[in-house]
Nucleic acid binder design. Sequence first.
RNA 1: GCCUCUGUAGCUCAGUGGAUAGAGCAGCGGUCUUCUAAACCGUUGGUCGGGAGUUCGAAUCUCUCCAGGGGCGCCA
Length: 571
Amino acid sequence: MKPLSEQHADLVVSAIQAAQQAGDLPAFDIPEVPINPSKRIEQGDFASPVAMALARVAKMKPLDIANAIVAHLPAADFIESAEVSPPGFINFRLSKLWLIDQINVLIEQGDTFGNLDIGHGKRAQVEFVSANPTGPLHVGRSRGAIVGDAVARILEAAGFEVQREYYFNNAGVQMKNLGESLRVRYLEALGQPVEIPDESASWFYQGEYLKDIAQQLIEEQGDALLDADWQPFKVYAEAAMFKVIKETLARVDIHHDAFFNENSLFENNAIWDVLDALDKGGYIYKSPVREGESEDVIEKNKDLAPATWFRSTRFGDSEDRVLVKSDGAPTYTLPDIAYHKNKIERGFDLLVNVLGADHYTQHQVVKYGIQALGLDASKINVILIQMVRMVRDGKEVKISTRRGTYETLDDLIDATSADAVRYTLAARNPNSQMDFDMDLAIRRSNDNPVYYIQYAHVRCAGILREAQTRGFSDDGADLSLLDEEALRFMRKCLELPDQIRFAAETLSPHTIPHFALEIANQFHPMYDRVRVFGEGVDPELAKARLRFYRAVQAMFKRMLKLMGMSAPEFM
RNA sequence: GCCUCUGUAGCUCAGUGGAUAGAGCAGCGGUCUUCUAAACCGUUGGUCGGGAGUUCGAAUCUCUCCAGGGGCGCCA
């Protein structure tokens, strides 16, 4: 389905061309034609201010341009009329017959209603969550998880084939610490004399979850690991952590298609290939300090073993970056560049990274690296998630996974609901910082807009249930009997393709929850006025209204699924 | 200091260069013998952070100033 605004725009373009050929408009290059849903009933259903924009280039009054366009407008089944309104707006009104037809289209298409094909034949990848398996997902990760999955769903609706990927590192010092920590808990659980490190031991993961995992390990393997070092513990802990993480994500209906291990880039030498390629391009130098440092800095560091530097300043970076440390170990940046190279080579047309805002600089450097490799860095799109501050009792809750004082995503879901978490975190512009008030989320969960939207679905389901008990069918309904208000609601539903297009093109998933709220906001007042089984409602009209509400229910189900939320029949 | 994000109703936030800036919550006053009142109806509430500029037209684009968050590591 093509967005209605585009269909209107196509007509306007044809009209301008026809007017130019007829000599009613002078020759000029036709710009992109803006079409917006009208805000007021008297201004029709869709409106275009294109005549105002053309006034200068056509050297004519906007009103005259608008009239010329309308005069040459081709006929279309979805258009009832086009009128010109000062200072030069063109107001389109949708055909009632066509609109009525869309009710059946909505029922037939159901969960695919509003789908586009702008991504037709294209593959997109969304990389999100990507937390190392050192503990349960803490609440600070929630926003990125929800936003990432929301984007993936929108891209799917836009016609892309989407892969959800999770990037992780299981080889670092943090994973070793996790293994060591589990070992301590294991020995403790077996009653061995072992000292439990206190909070001052920064390497030790204090979280309760490691005690549970130690218990599991004993059930499975008894005391077989009494003399083992940290490594088998790390392997066991990692598997256990991933299981927990996946289960948590599944609660909010998030499922990754691929898990990419950073370590594989070491094992297949990908990172060293990248380093060689950068070197061949002249982007690498070895030195104890950055090029261009002052004499005293050079002097101070002259005994330091040389590190390997990336000349990212060639691409506008404020300073060069280290790729390989003095001790010969790569920094995080090198595998990250290799990872993105790998992604591009896998043939995706569109790459989306959902990252915390604190990764801004790191991501820039990766893009410079991709450029230096001669690859198309513009394929990489980044959604930077601004911080979520967890607030309780009006005070910020500090989160530290290692000390075990975290609030997990699981906690948040338990305290509210999966649907509330999805809606609340998806409804905000990722660029905006937000405070997540834990008290508010718990105490006032009934005030959440999520219930307002779901209740609309419930009410439709209620009507259909009532019809069933009464043995009342909408077979052969004459939809031309339908109320103006119902048709206005249908018109609003037809904005969905435009909404999906905008969200997909700008990677702005938060617009969909807002649209869903708008739809619900138009629904509830109508529900009170447009009754199916009300007193004095003609049976034929009731039949038409019943069919209409069948479509409305399909619409809400569609919206809720698009947001990864449940569509309850009862509340 | 440099980079970046944010500033819109009491609060939380939408808003794609277009017509009279919106929603939810909170507030105030009403409405259930009805397909679920988790709802509806009415109503209060705005120098779109300040200033200048571009434009036929600016919450939206540019500049500048103010305020707040984040980042500027041979950490990941």
